[in-house]
Structure formats: C-alpha cells, structure tokens
Design a protein around this nucleic acid. Sequence first.
DNA 1: CTCCATCTGTAACAAATGTTACTGTAAAGC
DNA 2: GCTTTACAGTAACATTTGTTACAGATGGAG
Lengths: 208, 208
Amino acid sequence: MIQKISDNYTTLFEEDLLKEIDLIGIYKEVSEGFELIKPGNYIKFMPLIIRGAIKILRGDNDGDELLLYFLEKGDTCAMTLSCCLGHHKSEIKAITETDTELIMIPVEKMEEWTTKYKSWRSFVFDSYHKRLIEAIETIDSIAFLKMDDRLLKYLRDKTKINNSKIINTTHQQIAYDLHTSRVVISRLLKKLENNTIVKLNRNNIELL
Amino acid sequence: MIQKISDNYTTLFEEDLLKEIDLIGIYKEVSEGFELIKPGNYIKFMPLIIRGAIKILRGDNDGDELLLYFLEKGDTCAMTLSCCLGHHKSEIKAITETDTELIMIPVEKMEEWTTKYKSWRSFVFDSYHKRLIEAIETIDSIAFLKMDDRLLKYLRDKTKINNSKIINTTHQQIAYDLHTSRVVISRLLKKLENNTIVKLNRNNIELL
DNA sequence: CTCCATCTGTAACAAATGTTACTGTAAAGC
DNA sequence: GCTTTACAGTAACATTTGTTACAGATGGAG
C-alpha cells in the first residue's frame, strides 16, 4: 500500500505517515458506476484515490442534479473533508466514473494527522484549494458559456478522464450531468456532428 | 486590536496568537465601494474582517462578471488563502460592500501560524469549508433557479448583509452581479413590485 | 426470428432570457 | 432657471433553452 501511495501522490508524505496509512487505511477496489456517497449520508471515511476516477455531483431536493467535477488519482474529496471536520451530512453524490482503487482513512485520523504531519496538512490545504478552483470553474461554465460550449467542454473532460476519445454514454446521461433535457443534448450533438467535431454512434460518442 | 479580534471572531485564538496578530497585523479602515483585489493582482496580505462586508466577484476574460458571495465579520477570503499558499495570481475581484474594518496579515505568517497554532489551523480549515459551501450554493442558484428567484435571493442576501430592508443600488448594478442585462432586471423587479414584494424608487429598492 | 425495451432523430411549439431602441423622469451641475 | 447625465419603464423582436410527441433504429431476451 505504501508503494501505491508514493507512486500516485505528488505530495511526499513522511515515512511515519506512510506507515500509519499502511497500518490504518483500508484498501478497496470499486467497479464503475458504484454510488460511493449519497446525499444525506454521514461520512465516516475519507477516500484517497489511487487509480480511476470519481464523479462528484450536486443534487437538489427534487432529484435534479449537476456535475461538479471529477476526482482522479492523487485527489481526495474536499467535501468529505468538510463533512468530517464539521460532522455534517453529505450534500453531494459520488459515483465511480471508472473502475477505481482507493484507500479509506477513518475520520478520526484526520485531525490527528493534521496536527502531527506537515505533509498531511499541505495535502489537505492543497485539496481544498483545488476543489475551490474547480467549483469556481464550474460556475464559470454555467454562468458564462452557452449549452453548446458546455457540452463540448464536458466531452473533452470526459475523454481526458477516461483517457480515450470514445465516450460510452447516452444522451440522457449527459443531460443529467449538465442539468438539461435529452432532446437538447441530441440537438446539439447533431450540430457538432455536422461540424465534424464528433461522430455519433449508439451508446457511444467519438471526439474527432 | 486584540479586543476587536476576540469580539468578532467565534474561533477562540490562543493568547499568544492574539499577541502576534496585534504585533504584526495592520489595521485598516476602508470605505464602501473600494476595490481591494483586482484579477491579476498578486496578493501579499490576508484580510481578517472585523466589521462590514466584502463582495467577492468572479470576472472572466471579457469583463463579464458574477457575484460569488459576501464575506462578513469573522470571515477571511479563502481565495486569498489559496493564492497565498500556492503563490498564484488572484482570479477574483473583491469590493467593499459597506464601510469595512479589517486587519491585514502578511502572507509569510500564514504557513508559520498554521504550524504553530491549532486555533489558526481550525480557522483556516473552517474558512475553506465555508467558502466551498458558498460556492456550491452559488452553483445551485445559477443551475437550478430561474432569474426571478435568483433576483429575490440576491435582494434578500443584500438586506441581510446590510442589515436594512432598503437596498441602495441601480438595476444596472444588479444586472452586473447576476450577469444578465439591465432590461431583464427592470422587467423582473416590476413584476415583483406588482406582486407587492418590493417597492421601487430611484437608486433604491425596498423589500417588503 | 419476433418482441420489447432503450436509444436516437426530428418537428412543432412554449417559455425564458437577451437585445435594441426609444421615452420620460429625477438629480446634479451650471 | 436651464442643461446634461444617469436611471428606469416599456415595446418589439431575436435567440436560446425547455417540452411534448412521435417515429425509426438497434440490440438483447425469449
């Protein structure tokens, strides 16, 4: 486990901290499409991502939802941090975007390590920073971009996360992530296809 | 200065930390409408707000802008924290909403105090947490609400911040904050007036 | 193969928001 | 007082996005 952490985290954790993670962390493999966190859950573990990607969504009271951002290897979930420190309920939804390996750290260790290890402190600050930036980028997209550009950005993010120009998803699923309707997405995708920016197949979109 | 801090911050800072703030912090009074931070600035100080309110805006490349949230007494600017720790340029704009008293802390002290004082660490974590929550609430508004509800929310936030049912501003200014056009705001305000939710005057809106 | 569920394409329309243009009115400066 | 400027009201129209309804295509289950 130590090896996996050092290989995938740019933050250099102290030797002692690595040993603690090795001792206390729970290694887990999760397959694609699993709902790790539901709105309303209390969170007892903090995930360190080793491989794969996790999609973080905001859900409102009526089942509407909106993609906030993706987490990748080396990341952790700042909302989880918030919830842990503040002992609040989750206000978000987390779903594995691909098969994912992660290490679960019990909440209690959070504060302890924050006091004890400088590198852990930096890691946590850095995570907050990244998430805040991502949240603000999401605001940029919604506020300043039209749906066609948001869609294109979404497709590009997807190819980056999955490391493949082929995106396996349905129009309906994209509509959920961008909080719009399926018809709108179909319409705009068709326009992108006419401009030879994508190629459309059933359950599958290729970014050219 | 120690008194001002202890009076206005719920986080209880240690005696030693309070002394350091007293010694190092620079007390400042800023009048309404002053632009504290411009996009592109490097930030050398971190503000602790004692009294008043600061409006934080996101600005894109073309001069478009959008209100992110307000800061009040007891708050600090998480984006500033980010910038300080990461030594990045500012990506936001900060304008005093009312006359404001604040204490400026030089960036160098940030990391030092984070290591040295537990209460400072909690304060910084808590600030990040609050800002992340606020950013996500802003996302909620833009993504899930129509302009009329966003406007009403905006007016209510304003009355809360300024502690008065009378809002002194122009339709154009609201339009900038919500990133829409003046005509749209005028139209919706008129509708709110017809429903006796507000009363409109020149440079001045009263929330009923 | 046939049936069925799911996915996609498209049209026609409705609603929300953005744009342009013009008017009147209050306040500020002279 | 008069003139100028900023602010607000309104109409007419354009664009974007959302909604409903239906038809055709695809692939899997039986």
